[in-house]
């Protein structure tokens, strides 16, 4: 049952986002692992479309926050206004009170504003004017980020990058997919037309099921070997944290579930590893985030136990 839901979800999403099946699976496994997703790419590659489509298909309340350099924390969290009738302050919740939030171009906002959102992501609650208000369940943040070499950006600090379970890049579509894109309808209209494929309850079940996948001792050994390799390798400044290790396993479980298995294989870990580890590591040589080559080499250097 669970798997048919996933299939339907992927099929429907594939109708809207063309030729990005692998990225869709990655995004979905991130959500199923209850993690937040960071999409890093140049504008116009379908970041917004992807998150919007996911919100629609999952039947989630959707809010989009366009981050700009003058955005203030209150613009996200909400403000208290004085209500004349009740003669009291009333809290007007901000856009963060939604189930799926698209934080567009998050690195355009000042660090203060960024951290307001990132705190909400971690705590899954918001504190304003002394009141602590829980955020709705489920709660996802999909943040998009322009490559940091573009002007007018405040790159996210490492501690905040760590809040995102996965970081993916969409990249340019293939020739065929782009042709279809050019010939077809406007994606935004398509999104407006689709209906939710699963209910929030189904989503909750899926998330729960993802945590129940079987992880053999051998696989734990493998994940530990990978973590150790990132810590011992001279190529990286620091290794992966235990939190990253837990994220790695959670994402691998979700990926295995999407693949229709009830147990996790080393391949699952290897597929999601670049996206879980990539934005958490820095190369010793130039401080850059490791690219595909470095991560592949790391994976190749760790034999399966």
């Amino acid at each position: 049952m669970a798997h048919t839901n996933i299939e339907r979800l992927l099929n429907a999403a594939g109708e809207i986002i063309l030729g990005k099946e692998h990225e869709l699976r990655l995004a979905l496994s991130c959500l199923l692992a209850r993690g937040h997703l960071l999409i890093e790419d140049v504008p116009g590659t379908g970041k917004t479309t992807l998150s919007h489509a996911l919100a629609r298909l999952l039947g989630l309340q959707f809010q989009r926050i366009q981050f700009t350099s003058d955005l203030l924390p209150a613009d996200i969290v909400g403000v208290s206004v004085f209500d004349r009738e009740s003669a009291a302050f009333r809290f007007l919740p901000g856009p963060v009170f939604a189930q799926l939030i698209l934080a567009d171009e998050i690195n355009r906002a000042t660090p203060k504003t960024q951290s307001a959102l990132l705190e909400a992501m971690e705590e899954r609650q918001v504190t304003a004017d002394g009141h602590t208000l829980p955020l709705p369940e489920p709660f996802f943040v999909i943040a998009t980020q322009n490559p940091s070499y573009q002007i007018g950006t405040f790159p996210l600090p490492e501690s905040q990058l760590d809040r995102f379970l996965m970081c993916i890049r969409l990249g340019y579509p293939s020739r065929d997919a782009e042709r279809k894109l050019l010939q077809g309808e406007d994606r935004r209209e398509l999104i407006a037309e689709v209906d939710a494929v699963i209910s929030p309850d189904d989503l909750y079940d899926l998330q729960y099921a993802a945590r129940e996948l079987i992880v053999a001792d051998r696989l734990i050994d493998y994940v530990q070997a990978l973590l150790a390799a990132t810590r011992q390798s001279a190529e990286f400044v620091t290794g992966l944290s235990p939190r990253a290790g837990m994220g790695l396993l959670a994402a691998a479980r979700a990926w295995a579930m999407i693949a229709g298995r009830d147990h996790v294989l080393p391949e699952d870990v290897q597929r999601i590893f670049p996206h879980v580890a990539g934005h958490r590591l820095h190369l010793t040589s130039d401080g850059r985030m490791p690219g595909r080559d470095e991560l592949t080499r790391l994976l190749q250097s760790v034999p399966l136990p």
Binding site: K20, H22, E23, L26, D41, I168, R169, L170, G171, Y172, A234, Q270, R271, P274, H275, G278, G291, R292, L295, T296, R297, L299, Q300, S301
Partner: peptide
Amino acid sequence: MKLALPITLAEPPSVALRRDQ
């Protein structure tokens, strides 16, 4: 930008001599 492609580990570990080796 090509990170999104699935990584395959089929080819044996790179034999090219690394500098420190």
